[in-house]
Amino acid sequence: MDQTKVRDLVDEALALNESLYLIDFVISENNKIQITVDGDNGVPLSECIRISRSVDNNFDREEEDFSLEVSTPDIAHPLKVNRQYIKNINRILKVKTSVEEFEGTLVEADEDKIVLNWKAREPKPIGKGKVTVSKAATIAYKDIIEAKVKIVF
């Protein structure tokens, strides 16, 4: 299976809807093509079908034996692309870096970094008891090992 040709076909299909972007693209040894796409406003099933057909229609199944799967990312999977962070602003993220873990509301995401806010209970500077304080962390994408959206019911 020609990986470059498949990738070009996927890119062409995604170009028709600029709110969509590629998350993952894998061709296994037994020609199973797995394409994962996401969108700034979600991905309707019709778009997954359209992308699948634009790839499938450009190959002759008599010559190439392959399976094709176009899907959207599972909420349990980590964020992989910067645009996914922008899409999830105002949601709670669990972020792991090599130094520590954070859990907070994503309040900002740009090309280089994200900003998380959360509240924490800390001992009072004077006296007994605790006080609630607001905390923030600015984390560069390059420092993020894993980031997942926390599902709150």
Score class of each variant (00 low, 15 high):
residue 33 I to D: 02
residue 57 N to V: 10
residue 67 S to C: 05
residue 86 I to K: 14
residue 36 T to S: 00
residue 126 I to L: 13
residue 18 E to Q: 13
residue 133 V to R: 15
residue 4 T to L: 07
residue 105 T to L: 10
residue 92 I to N: 01
residue 25 F to Y: 07
residue 30 N to P: 09
residue 89 I to M: 10
residue 48 C to T: 10
residue 76 A to S: 14
residue 127 G to H: 03
residue 47 E to I: 00
residue 7 R to N: 05
residue 129 G to R: 01
residue 48 C to R: 04
residue 133 V to S: 11
residue 117 N to W: 12
residue 138 T to K: 13
residue 55 V to E: 01
residue 85 Y to T: 01
residue 49 I to A: 13
residue 150 K to I: 15
residue 33 I to N: 00
residue 34 Q to G: 06
residue 82 N to L: 13
residue 3 Q to R: 12
residue 128 K to V: 15
residue 73 P to Y: 02
residue 12 E to C: 04
residue 37 V to C: 03
residue 70 V to L: 00
residue 105 T to C: 09
residue 135 K to D: 04
residue 93 L to W: 03
residue 53 R to G: 09
residue 133 V to H: 11
residue 59 F to I: 08
residue 113 K to M: 11
residue 69 E to H: 07
residue 51 I to P: 00
residue 76 A to M: 09
residue 27 I to W: 07
residue 139 I to D: 11
residue 135 K to G: 10
residue 150 K to S: 06
residue 69 E to L: 07
residue 46 S to W: 09
residue 83 R to G: 01
residue 125 P to K: 15
residue 147 A to P: 03
residue 61 R to H: 11
residue 56 D to F: 11
residue 111 E to D: 13
residue 29 E to I: 15
residue 139 I to K: 08
residue 102 F to E: 08
residue 144 I to V: 08
residue 42 G to Q: 01
residue 151 I to T: 11
residue 119 K to F: 07
residue 91 R to S: 14
residue 49 I to T: 08
residue 83 R to A: 12
residue 14 L to P: 08
residue 21 Y to G: 05
residue 95 V to C: 05
residue 142 K to F: 02
residue 70 V to W: 00
residue 8 D to T: 09
residue 136 A to G: 14
residue 97 T to V: 04
residue 106 L to N: 10
residue 85 Y to E: 04
residue 94 K to N: 09
residue 46 S to F: 06
residue 91 R to L: 08
residue 145 I to R: 07
residue 125 P to V: 07
residue 119 K to Q: 12
residue 146 E to T: 06
residue 3 Q to I: 11
residue 62 E to I: 01
residue 16 L to W: 07
residue 140 A to P: 03
residue 82 N to Q: 15
residue 68 L to N: 03
residue 7 R to W: 06
residue 72 T to I: 06
residue 86 I to Y: 13
residue 142 K to A: 15
residue 55 V to K: 00
residue 90 N to M: 10
residue 91 R to Q: 14
residue 79 L to K: 02
residue 97 T to Y: 02
residue 88 N to M: 11
residue 24 D to N: 10
residue 21 Y to S: 09
residue 8 D to A: 06
residue 105 T to I: 13
residue 74 D to G: 10
residue 45 L to K: 04
residue 92 I to Y: 00
residue 25 F to D: 00
residue 124 K to L: 08
residue 126 I to D: 11
residue 4 T to W: 00
residue 129 G to H: 09
residue 43 V to T: 02
residue 42 G to F: 04
residue 121 R to K: 15
residue 39 G to Q: 03
residue 72 T to K: 07
residue 145 I to D: 02
residue 138 T to R: 12
residue 147 A to G: 05
residue 51 I to Y: 01
residue 113 K to L: 12
residue 106 L to M: 05
residue 109 A to F: 06
residue 67 S to H: 03
residue 41 N to F: 15
residue 7 R to Q: 12
residue 128 K to T: 15
residue 134 S to D: 15
residue 15 A to H: 08
residue 19 S to P: 04
residue 120 A to Q: 13
residue 65 D to H: 12
residue 22 L to A: 05
residue 131 V to M: 09
residue 49 I to V: 15
residue 19 S to Q: 12
residue 86 I to G: 08
residue 5 K to P: 01
residue 84 Q to R: 09
residue 124 K to V: 06
residue 137 A to G: 07
residue 95 V to D: 05
residue 145 I to G: 03
residue 123 P to K: 15
residue 54 S to L: 11
residue 122 E to D: 11
residue 108 E to C: 13
residue 122 E to Y: 02
residue 103 E to M: 12
residue 10 V to S: 02
residue 123 P to I: 04
residue 150 K to Q: 13
